[in-house]
Structure formats: C-alpha cells, structure tokens
C-alpha cells in the first residue's frame, strides 16, 4: 500500500509498524516512531496496523542545540 514515511510517499508491503521497520531495515536500530502525528511506543509497534495514506515518522538520535 501507499503510505508516507518521513515525508515521502512510498509503496510498502508491511501491514504493521513493526513490519515496516523491518522492511525498511530499521529492525536493529534505536528509533522512535509516530503514526499520523501520534507517538507509538516500541512495545506497541507489533500491534499497530497501517492503512493507505498513513504518515509514519521514524526518527533517530541527532545533534541538537
């Protein structure tokens, strides 16, 4: 299905947020996730289903002031 990941539209196979992280190569990374602007805890990713048009943010630790 077609969803938005970090501001870019793309087609993905994954049906859940956890599967999406695996599909995109993040499964062993320290990341934070949000779905449609709502925080999704790591523990809840398995149970979070994706639908077409969803906007997902996958964020990593970065420099900041």
């Amino acid at each position: 299905m077609n969803i938005e990941v970090n501001g870019k539209r793309r087609d993905v196979q994954a049906a859940t947020l956890a599967a999406l992280l695996e599909e995109l190569g993040y499964e062993d990374r320290l990341v934070a996730t949000a779905l449609n602007r709502n925080f999704v805890r790591a523990a809840d990713r398995q149970g979070t289903e994706l639908k077409a048009g969803d906007a997902v943010e996958i964020l990593v630790p970065r420099q900041g002031g």
Binding site: L30, A32, I58, L59, R62, G65
Partner: peptide, 19 residues
C-alpha cells in the same frame, strides 16, 4: 548536552555513531 530527534539523512547510519 542537548540532543534532538530527526529523520535519518540517506542510508548513512550517522545517528548511531553520534549516539
């Protein structure tokens, strides 16, 4: 020290080395 969360730029794993 202050830090932030950002989308990762490209395929680099610079976030990991920073952390």
């Amino acid at each position: 020290v202050t830090v932030s969360l950002r989308r990762e730029a490209g395929a680099s794993r610079s976030g990991e080395s920073f952390w």
